[in-house]
Amino acid sequence: MIALLKKILLVDLLQGLWVTFRNQHPKHLYTEQYPLERPKVAERFRGAPRLNINPDNGETLCISCDLCAKACPENLIVVTSVRNEQTKRKDLTTFTYDTSRCMFCGLCEDACPVDALELTQDFELASYTREGLIWDRQMLEEGPKPTRYTR
């Protein structure tokens, strides 16, 4: 008798629908509408590398100490420099970073004594060529410029 009533009143169906409705709240949505809406990654996200420049005079912060290259397990950073006779310091000439082999472990970032090298929140690193994944100093200072999609 009760079973019949349940059937007539569609209790099971309503229960099922209630579960569906309960999970409709936007708080429960986890799907990212990626190219249209870029996800907000954490502040500490380890993504695209960046070589910081001094915002006041546009000079690089890097002191060419080579510590990042020595710390990297994949050995993918190459730093070259020339000695500047006036300031008695080393001036950075080239800095290459092979993102195709990088595993974003953060060891280079930790090793840098002046916080010049940093892994940033950019995550769109794809390139059409293998060479495009090897970043030079200019690319590292400017950061990647991914295409923005809008509706």
Binding site: H28, Y30, V41, A42, E43, R44, F45, R46, M103, F104, C105, G106, L119
Partner: peptide
């Protein structure tokens, strides 16, 4: 996977990576 996402978010906030955390 929804619940796991919350854990991964905590990892990401803490160390910057979700899966291979180091």
């Amino acid at each position: 996977l929804r619940e796991r996402e919350e854990v991964l978010k905590i990892f990401e906030n803490y160390c910057g990576a979700r899966l291979t955390t180091h």
